[in-house]
């Protein structure tokens, strides 16, 4: 192996210069949540399980007709998850509270993408097909997607679904927060607009967060003292309040730390300006050159000297 002397010093110089700047690149991780984004407050004490939100979602997003009609209440007998043909589903839970007639009181839970403040899916996406938009929605650009499904691995709520039965052009399917609709003046998400009881309140995230806190304060004893989505995984655009503990309603217990923080900190710490690979290249080059020299001196000194 023959290392060209000048070439080697060029590379080493670049390595040294770049290695000086790691500190500048490895800045502390900061949330990239948009400042004035929209959000939705879901008040589970209001939801009556009518599934109008599912129906509206299906209509405004042009999704295929369901096998069982939206008017059929027997659908609620099974627990469902959002899937590639429906962005949102309502499930019924009986956490154990009885009404005055000794009947179990149902609590209905609407599920959809939570539109995290710092979405794990957007951090994970290899091509940046998923992005957190200024208006708060986590937006999917099918034109960039390659179908690696790392977003689905990353999502702590297990929301993104996939068109597994499309052989060539499958899409990741999830709630869009009605991105186009809410981008317009006075536009509302389909589900929030149709909800007959305003179980879903749409507004700026800090507005609905204040509203949630106000409801907790104004109705002592009615709600559990927890706004789900205020702090979970660094906060979500969709937040929930409930009269029943969230653990009993199928909500996952999640840490407050934004999901992408650890991986992004490691990645940026190591690879800002590619300082570590360049440094490693320089070090290995140095070792290689030293060993090369030793070899040359030891073995065929004359032959190399001519070259």
């Amino acid at each position: 192996m023959n290392i060209n002397r000048r070439g080697f010093f060029k590379v080493m110089g670049a390595a040294g210069a770049t290695a000086m700047t790691p500190a500048a690149g490895a800045r502390a991780w900061e949330s990239a949540a948009p400042p004035d984004a929209f959000g939705c407050l879901v008040d589970l004490t209001r939801c009556i399980g009518c599934r109008k939100c599912e129906e509206a979602c299906n209509r405004v997003n042009g999704l295929p007709a369901p096998e069982i009609s939206f008017d059929d209440p027997t659908v609620l007998d099974t627990r469902r998850r959002p899937h590639e043909k429906s962005y949102t589903v309502v499930n019924r839970y009986f956490p154990g509270t009885l009404d005055t007639h000794d009947q179990l009181v149902p609590t209905f839970v609407k599920l959809q993408c939570m539109h995290c403040q710092d979405p794990a899916c957007a951090s994970a996406c290899i091509v940046g097909a998923l992005t957190k938009k200024e208006n708060g929605s986590v937006y999917y650009d099918v034109g960039k997607c390659i179908g690696c499904r790392y977003c689905m691995v990353a999502c702590p709520f297990e929301i993104p679904a996939y068109e597994y039965h499309d052989p060539v052009t499958p899409r990741v399917m999830k709630c869009t927060f009605c991105f186009e609709r809410i981008s317009k003046e006075n536009g509302l998400p389909g589900c929030a607009q149709i909800c007959p009881v305003e179980a879903i309140t749409f507004g700026r995230r800090d507005t609905v967060m204040a509203l949630a806190k106000q409801r907790l304060k104004d109705n002592p004893g009615k709600y559990v003292n927890h706004i789900y989505g205020e702090k979970e995984v660094g906060g979500t655009s969709w937040i929930y309040i409930s009269s029943e503990p969230f653990e009993d309603l199928g909500f996952p217990s999640l840490p407050d730390r934004p999901t992408p923080k650890l991986a992004e900190t490691i990645q940026h710490g190591l690879f800002s300006y590619l300082w570590s690979p360049i440094l490693l290249f320089g070090v290995l080059g140095g070792i290689m050159r030293r060993n090369e020299k030793k070899n040359v001196h030891g073995k065929d000194k004359e032959a190399r000297h001519d070259a």
């Binding site: 509302l188 305003e198 700026r204 204040a210 409801r215």
Partner: peptide, 19 residues
């Protein structure tokens, strides 16, 4: 109207009826 920005706690007419 529902979801008035300056008065978010006030129910809209549809929700007021239903509730």
């Amino acid at each position: 109207e529902a979801f008035k920005a300056d008065n978010p706690q006030r129910l809209g007419l549809k929700a007021a009826f239903h509730q």
